[in-house]
């Protein structure tokens, strides 16, 4: 177990009970009536969902950066998150959101469609450049179709619902979303973790990785599946939550030896910690309407991205 896993594991264990107590009303189990009911039915599923969503996004970000050998890579580059978002938007457009399972299932279908399209375009050759371009194309297409759906929304309420959902949040989520997302994210993280050694070999370039026995074609499929499951499930239950996959590996790297394989698990823990903390903060902010989690993380992520670019520019100078 590396230092990153220990540090973020301990921090997550400390943050979880605090997040259960945090909210518009600070929950004192001894004095608040129905505290156990509030904990069991509202706060615990929300916190666990934050851990699951953040864990999946963090691990996906670490794997993406390892695969593309680029510290600025983000799971969004694969187009899977926009694909899942498009699926959810279709469900909202047709008014299926009232059904508890339909929206996440549509989102998962959208993620699956994006994965299939990506694999159909780039899967045969397995080249990283083609893969990245295919991901950008899928993201761009899904984004355009989402914008089309918004502009042609049947009524103002549907449009507002779509825009709000796209901003990402864990508000009003229940055990249903936890049960839906958890197995998919766990399988996805396991797949990414299994790909770790091949990602280490890619440190020396694709040709060396292949000469070391890495089947880069199979690796591509494992990554599409792993990232599809983690990111697709996360978007299905929480909407678009950006920047987690970009930020988290950078927080983890100083605590590891920089090998991609050593980043997957601590990045999952750090992603879980980041989303759990951010979700707790948006709950306690003194605002009339709760700040959407997706917006909060983008407000945090954009300056971080800028700082990262400036630091890289200094490194190149």
């Amino acid at each position: 177990m590396n230092r990153g896993t220990m540090v973020f594991g301990v921090l997550l264990c400390l943050a979880l009970p605090l997040s259960l107590l945090a909210g518009k009303v600070w929950l004192d189990p001894a004095s608040v009536p129905n505290a156990s009911l509030i904990l069991a039915e509202l706060r615990l599923p929300r916190s666990l969902l934050a851990i699951v969503v953040g864990g999946g996004l963090g691990a996906a970000g670490a794997a993406m950066q390892g695969y593309l050998r680029n510290p600025l890579a983000d799971p969004g580059l694969f187009g899977i998150a926009p694909g899942a978002a498009l699926g959810a938007v279709v469900a909202l457009w047709f008014g299926y959101a009232a059904s508890p399972w339909l929206l996440p299932l549509f989102a998962l279908t959208g993620a699956g469609g994006a994965m299939a399209l990506l694999a159909a375009i780039a899967g045969r050759t397995g080249g990283i450049a083609l893969f990245t371009l295919a991901g950008l194309m899928v993201a761009s297409l899904a984004g355009a179709l989402t914008a089309l759906a918004i502009s042609m929304a049947p009524n103002a309420f549907a449009m507002s619902e779509i825009v709000l959902w796209l901003n990402g949040a864990l508000t009003d989520r229940s055990w249903r979303e936890v049960w839906l997302a958890t197995p998919l994210v766990v399988v996805g993280v396991l797949l990414l973790w299994r790909a770790g050694q091949a990602l280490d070999a890619l440190t020396l370039g694709e040709a060396v990785a292949r000469s070391l026995g890495v089947n880069t074609h199979a690796l591509l499929w494992v990554l599409i599946a792993g990232i599809g499951l983690t990111v697709g499930a996360s978007v299905a239950v929480a909407g678009i939550i950006g920047f987690v996959g970009l930020i988290v590996p950078h927080l983890v790297r100083p605590l590891t030896d920089n090998r991609p394989s050593q980043l997957i698990v601590p990045s999952a823990l750090a992603g879980a910690l980041l989303v759990l903390t951010a979700d707790s903060v948006v709950r306690i902010l003194p605002m009339v309407t709760e700040l959407r989690l997706g917006i909060a993380l983008s407000l945090l992520g954009a300056p971080f991205f800028l700082w990262l670019l400036l630091r890289m520019r200094r490194g190149l100078a």
């Binding site: 280490d200 440190t203 370039g205 040709a207 070391l212 890495v214 030896d257 090998r259």
Partner: peptide
Amino acid sequence: YLPQEHEVAWDVPVRNLVELGRMP
């Protein structure tokens, strides 16, 4: 196989790089 380009994408310890030779 040793290619002409000496690409090392991440700032990993030297020993870990050499250990990659044992991967097969």
